[in-house]
């Protein structure tokens, strides 16, 4: 995607170059409409040409145990008990494309993580140095490190398709329209409708998952049991503040002054008091 569209860039020393005003996109996952077919997983692998990872049955309907550098989306299946009944919770686990991206704030490599005007957060692997600070900075545990390339990978919202005016591959393939795609505004309105529908059908706490702590996300969920977010593995109040722990923000500025002060005071000492040469000091003064 064009540099004209870059709104934020990691470890930047100058403002991001983006000047385009494009609509913000969002993907909406209606968990209640998902039938768990994993078509989105396959579409993601196909479009992005990601290698197949052998997997084994581990007592779940889930395909893989975890996300990986080659598996950017994973349908997680969790069996939990609710009001004495077994509930099968499905979550489409992938990058949420945060408005305030913790990965980008934590990244020390200039330009390795960018956020486009349309809200997509993308990793430029050619600039990634493999420090994995983004893994620590992400409130959703999404980025995955690849040992062979020593780079980090995650869902890029099919940025190449979106750039060409297409929807992401997972959206296109979903047979039940559980995944919707459009402007963030439209998707928020659609989410409201879906939440209303769920409420009318007897769900007590349906919610739209678009957490405010990170300024909202560009992949949102309609969660049927909004009071059980932890069971969907969704943090209730994720944060990605650039300071003090992830980006070390203001602290680093203070640190720079402290180091500069150290060097400067040495210089001042040298220029005012000056060096002391032992041979110049008379022996009786010792």
């Amino acid at each position: 995607m064009s540099t004209l569209s870059i709104r934020r860039t990691s470890a930047a020393t100058s403002p991001a170059p983006g000047i385009r005003s494009t609509p913000e996109y969002a993907k909406l996952i209606d968990i209640g409409s998902c039938i768990g077919c994993k078509g989105c997983e396959v579409a993601c692998k196909e479009w992005n040409d990601l290698k197949v990872e052998p997997t084994a049955n581990f007592g779940s309907y889930q395909s893989h145990q975890d996300l990986s550098a080659h598996t950017w989306v994973l349908m997680r299946f969790d069996e939990v008990e609710m009001s004495g009944r077994l509930q099968w919770l499905i979550t489409k686990d992938a990058c949420l494309h945060c408005e305030e991206p913790g990965c980008l704030y934590a990244c020390p490599a200039p330009g390795a993580i960018v956020q486009y005007e349309n809200g997509i957060v993308d990793i430029n692997q050619d600039r990634c140095i493999g420090c994995q600070y983004c893994v620590t900075g992400c409130p959703f545990d999404i980025p995955r490190f690849d040992r062979d390339t020593k780079k980090v990978y995650k869902c890029n919202m099919c940025v190449d398709r979106v750039d060409a005016g297409l929807e992401p591959a997972c959206v296109k393939t979903c047979p039940t329209h559980a995944i919707s795609w459009g402007s963030k505004e439209d998707m928020l309105a659609l989410a409201d409708q879906k939440v209303d529908l769920l409420r009318r059908r007897g769900f007590e706490n349906p919610v739209t998952y678009n957490p405010a702590g990170i300024g909202g996300t560009h992949m949102m969920y309609v969660v049927p049991h909004g009071d059980r977010l932890a069971d969907y593995r969704l943090p209730a109040t994720p944060t990605a503040s650039p300071a003090p722990l992830t980006g070390l923000g203001a602290l680093k500025r203070i640190g720079a002054y402290v180091l500069g002060f150290g060097v400067l005071s040495s210089l001042v000492h040298y220029l005012t008091i000056g060096p002391q040469t032992a041979e110049d000091v008379p022996a009786d003064e010792h």
Binding site: G262, H269, Y270
Partner: peptide
């Protein structure tokens, strides 16, 4: 930060302040 300050001090004293 602390190590950087110590190194600055160490280099200054050893190399410049006390020939």
């Amino acid at each position: 930060l602390a190590g950087g300050l110590l190194l600055t001090l160490h280099v200054y004293l050893g190399l410049f302040a006390f020939p």
